[in-house]
């Protein structure tokens, strides 16, 4: 494992900690898209089907369990916690997330490496992860006030994707010289979706102003 991959995993983990911290400490999930969070549950469940059939390392197993567990915890908080659920911006979280599921699934049926359940679902999880942030970005755009923790959550999530791209570049040139188009292209699409957010995030950070995305 190279440093970019490790840094990517850590920023991913950190983004989840920031989100859970926000929800737990402030008892509020305002500005957070439940739809994006539900998509992440599906992403992790379909990607980590090999959790009990293929052992890679203790690190991998623990991280997979943490990602599945925390994504369920976040959705549970937003749906069922009696205080937190009242802060959910239901009327602004308007993205039709199920419209993302079917195209990603069809694409995975058409474009994959092996036509096996495991491989098609793994490919589906890559396609779905690439676009899962969209409901969250749409919600941010509709929010007049983005609190710091929410902004940081999305920032770290985007940083994780950027670091994974660097990880693939490193692997290709310095490790195995093997082209992996499916993760690469879906990863690049995913990273590109953050570009606009990053631009305004850095701008507001430089000006010491509150983050606001143009409508």
């Amino acid at each position: 494992m190279n440093l970019f991959r490790l840094a990517g995993d850590m920023t991913h983990l950190f983004s989840i900690i920031v989100l859970l911290l926000k929800i737990h400490a402030t008892k509020s999930c305002s500005g957070i898209s439940l739809k994006t969070q539900e998509l992440y549950v599906i992403v992790f469940l379909t990607r980590y089907l090999d959790l009990f059939t293929r052992f890679v390392s203790l690190y991998n197993t623990v991280m997979k369990i943490v990602f599945i567990g925390t994504s369920f915890a976040i959705v549970w908080y937003m749906r069922y916690h009696k205080v937190v659920k009242q802060t959910y911006n239901k009327d602004e979280d308007t993205f039709k997330h199920y419209f993302l599921l079917l195209p990603c699934f069809v694409l995975a049926l058409l474009l994959h490496n092996e036509f096996t359940t495991m491989d098609v679902l793994w490919t589906f999880s890559l396609y779905l992860e690439a676009v899962a942030i969209l409901p969250q970005l749409v919600l941010l755009q509709q929010s007049r006030n983005i609190d710091n923790l929410t902004g940081n959550y999305v920032f770290f999530l985007g940083a994780y994707r950027g670091l994974y791209v660097l990880n693939w570049i490193y692997r290709y040139f310095l490790q195995d010289h093997r082209a992996r188009w499916i993760p690469w292209i879906s990863g690049l699409v995913q990273t590109a979706l953050y570009a606009d957010f990053f631009y305004y995030y850095i701008l507001s950070w430089k000006k010491h102003e509150k983050l606001k995305l143009p409508a």
């Binding site: 995993d9 991913h12 293929r54 390392s57 490496n113 793994w122 990880n167 195995d176 992996r180 993760p183």
Partner: peptide
């Protein structure tokens, strides 16, 4: 064919 190591990523 052995499993592609990219699947070891998270």
């Amino acid at each position: 064919d052995e499993t592609d190591s990219v699947k070891d990523e998270l």
